[in-house]
Design a protein around this nucleic acid. Structure first.
Lengths: 224, 224, 224, 224
DNA sequence: CATGAATGAGCGTTCATTCAT
DNA sequence: GATGAATGAACGCTCATTCAT
């Protein structure tokens, strides 16, 4: 019979994560003190250790939460009728809708992952999830002839991830970055890679004269 | 009456930067102590402050030096007979030849730039130099009809930078990143953006056939 | 209207003391946390303060309980037909039978008594009880001519206590201490101090022969 | 070319040890904070770590210094013409001349040694030194027929150490302990164990009729 | 100019104790 | 009475920076 209900406990944990996220993004992991987070979350220094064993665990908890959220977003992507539109929406979401501090934190986490194995592992698993989801999705779409990828799907997905990271990075680091211009330009680069087949509503698909594939040159990969 | 010659002083400064770079890349800015750097560079904690006013100034000095080096590398790019080959070489250099710690440091500096205005300013100026160099170069190449960019040059360069950063980031952060596969794939994505005109040595360029630009659809930007 | 019966309350108090004893002996007073004891005794941190006002009070309670147990053991000593045998048994008990942690705790309590007046007072009263019991006992035995102490009884008892403490200390502190050898040696040192008169069962004690005391030189003290 | 001379450095180290000793004796290892010691020694918290790596190392340093001092004192004992007088002097020194806090610290160190292996090892080596010195000394004296131990020398020394520790313990723990009475009484107990042979100055030693040994009953040990 | 011992504010974390439930 | 989450003052220790030598 705990003094606090499970839901209240969860809420408090979330509250700590929320404030930790802002603090870490503002000042970086190492310049942020536990006291900073305590003050922001209006919690005592002792109490925070009820929820997280250490500062490291707090960082890991943050990444973990992000991953969970990401998984939800990918479930949506898989159901989307128009893949390219969904992808554009995803890019828009992370580039425009999400507040700056989320991206700053992403960079911070990448930097931390180059030396903190625990953080590296959590990020890697997060990244693998995204990659695998994309590969599974594109494979299915290709099997349904809704896309005709211009290269091996692994390579196409690799390029998409690379561009996605580049997008996030520049948005975070370059104050002059113009998302309105660059987002469509980026989609225009990705489109021929994925090469979506126009879906003719209420009409028999795949006419003999379907022209697009011919124009989509295969790009390099180890194998053809 | 300085006890040490100007050149010896310069050498010592370089030595500090060299070791600071390795230390910072290994452990991050905040986990690296001035003592660590002093030990590595075999200098006393007092002396290091003769060369750099503070730890922050040391970080800034590091970025500054990188910028200078970068400028040299870009001078070469502009003279290269084959732009795409030169670009591929550049990508190869930063992805394969440079040691890991340089990329870790790049990420670290990006993270730092989101909160340290001095670092942000130095990085921004470095970035602007690269961007301006590319724009000037592509503009000249386009004027000489050696390339026929598929979009506004500013946008093309913006995409190239984005992809370059994405490349560096993934190479730094993703241990499974396969540069051998991804580098050619990336070049294949950039090629139609820049759209280089095949140079027939000592022969009149082919004009009879419809030129490439027709096949290169203009990609989006606010302006067309 | 107490929810818990007096006996259950007493049992719980004892349980706390039992586990506190083990915890304190294992880690010392200051390295043992109240949480450690709570976990061991399966009680909540709030509840433990119902039984003991503070950590200090818990320590004092422990010593107090030891004193009570000691008093029981001394009652037996006084009734023993053979004083030296009973003494040897006592030494054997504290040196061999009692587990290590009891002796570690004894040392710990001695250390604590040098600065904690409450602990000092409890220990002193415990010590006085033992001393007074011994003095009363030896005085009676001397009056009955069952022993012929070689010095003032106070001094003899003082030496016995000193040796007893030395025995406990070395047994606790010196891992190479060999009780099997040292215990008889110690008894052989004490014997001439106490100088027990051989008891001939059911026969008039021998008086004709010069009694032992002649050979037992009085040992020093300010008074003789 | 250090800022501080080696001797000044040594003096500062000694100063820290001096004050640490008093602080530890007054409040125990765990209740004494590094700040307490810093304040007492008038040093900054940072500076103390130049001399000692940790609080543990400071404690170990303290014991180490005691050992060194002890070794000096034993050198004197070995040269003494009258062993029993020298022993009495030693007992007097540790019981009466040394300030209380030294003995409190001794108890503290014993308590600490039951759980801190580093402390245990240092104390054990200190103890072994004393034991070995005594054994070597008594063996030599016995060979020179200046003493005729009443039991195996190892056992005699074991008893002496036990009594010495008991003496220190009671002196530290029992405020009513009367050294003036107990010291001679203790020497009177030890004397027949060691059994010194009266040295007749200017007379041929070892007369046939040397009587003492006959009266000194062998005391128990595993072997005779 | 170089040295390196010294400084001291501040770090992440602990834990005896409290009190709303 | 019992609970256990919360409190918050310290704790041991670090490290960017200074300054007497």
């Amino acid at each position: 019979m705990p003094k606090i209900s499970a839901s209240a406990q969860h809420a408090r944990r979330e509250r700590i994560l929320d404030h930790a996220e802002r603090c870490f993004a503002r000042a970086g992991f190492h310049r942020t003190t536990m006291q900073d987070i305590c003050k922001a979350a209006e919690i005592s220094p002792g109490a925070i250790y009820t929820y997280f064993d250490s500062k490291e665990a707090l960082i890991a908890g943050l990444i973990e939460r992000d991953r969970a959220k990401l998984q939800g977003q990918f479930a949506g992507l898989a159901q989307a009728p128009d893949f390219m539109a969904a992808l554009a929406g995803l890019a828009e979401h992370y580039t425009v809708e999400e507040p700056d501090y989320k991206r700053a934190l992403f960079i911070e986490m990448g930097a931390e992952s180059t030396r903190n194995p625990q953080v590296a592992e959590t990020m890697r698993s997060c990244d693998s999830f995204v990659r695998d989801s994309f590969i599974a999705l594109l494979t299915r779409l290709a099997a349904e002839d809704r896309i005709r990828p211009s290269a091996e799907i692994e390579v196409v997905v690799g390029l998409m991830l690379l561009m996605g990271d580049g997008l996030l990075w520049r948005r975070a680091v370059d104050p002059g970055f113009d998302a309105r211009t660059m987002l469509p330009a980026l989609m225009a680069v990705i489109a021929p890679l994925v090469n979506p087949v126009p879906q003719l509503p209420h009409a028999p698909a795949r006419q003999a004269t379907a022209p697009a594939p011919a124009a989509a040159p295969r790009i390099a990969g180890e194998s053809v």
